[in-house]
């Protein structure tokens, strides 16, 4: 990760700035990026919010028994996540449905809206994904302790294993438990960021007359892949949150 490798040099008319798309800058005017500054990221967060509002609130405003197309999409997502929670965490996990649904629709919409050319992708920023990952992790861990007190720690104590192995397994279990938020946030951020970088690199090659047909085909192919990745990453994040929630609700295997 040296600066030379990432910081592009202009050579032979080819200009590569694959990482410039991730720059955070004030949306209105110039200046420093303070924590409250309205930035390009804020604008796209707003667009994500509006899209979610349009699909789930405007789409279902008819409250129709026979749904309109938009309403049926909302219902599909509702049913999908509801069933996922019910299947993985059981009936008592259903009351966390709004939280998990919030996570899912945010990640899904952020991933898909980021595929619009010239857009900004919040889920490619490690600060965003880490907030999501660590936030859910901390909340779920606190929930586990609130529900079960100290017996939540039995999650790490394998009573099935031979006695002399239990401490070793416990250490491994604790480490793997603590790594969960890291893997959650790196997986999501890394996938989305990598996809966008690859698209930009292909786009850079498209400026070169010889390579442009291949580059454009490459962009189309990678774009298709990224559409898959956008959906799959949202799904994976959500299903893992459900699994972790199950551990918090039922730590005694």
């Amino acid at each position: 990760m040296t600066q030379v490798a990432i910081e592009p040099e202009t050579k032979g008319g080819l200009v590569f700035h694959p990482l410039d798309q991730f720059i955070v800058k004030p949306a209105f005017g110039d200046g420093a990026v303070n924590w409250y500054t309205v930035t390009n990221l804020t604008v796209w967060m707003g667009i994500i919010l509006l899209a979610i509002f349009a699909l789930f609130v405007l789409g279902s405003r008819g409250r129709a028994i026979i749904p309109s197309r938009v309403q049926s999409i909302g219902e599909l997502m509702y049913g999908f996540i509801y069933k996922m929670i019910e299947d993985i965490t059981g009936k008592d996990g259903v009351k966390y449905f709004p939280y998990i649904m919030t996570l899912f629709v945010f990640i899904l919409f952020a991933n898909f809206i980021a595929l619009i050319p010239m857009s900004y992708s919040p889920t490619s920023m490690i600060a965003v994904t880490a907030t999501l990952g660590f936030g859910s992790f901390v909340a779920i861990t606190i929930l586990g302790f609130v529900k079960h007190g100290a017996s939540f720690l039995k999650l790490f104590w394998m009573s099935d294993a031979p006695l002399f192995l239990r401490p070793i397994i416990a250490v491994i279990e604790v480490i793997s438990y603590l790594v969960r938020p890291v893997s959650l946030s790196i997986r999501l951020g890394g996938n989305i960021a990598a996809g966008h970088v690859v698209l930009k690199v292909f786009a850079g090659f498209a400026a070169l007359a010889v390579a442009s047909p291949a580059a454009i085909l490459g962009i189309i192919a990678i774009y298709g892949l990224e559409v898959l990745v956008a959906g799959i990453q949202a799904y994976v994040f959500t299903i893992l949150i459900c699994v972790y929630l199950k551990d918090a609700l039922h730590p005694h295997h």
Partner: peptide, 11 residues
């Protein structure tokens, strides 16, 4: 800080 702030607002 900016990203985290706006993420939390959006969420």
């Amino acid at each position: 800080p900016n990203q985290i702030f706006w993420l939390i607002v959006t969420l």
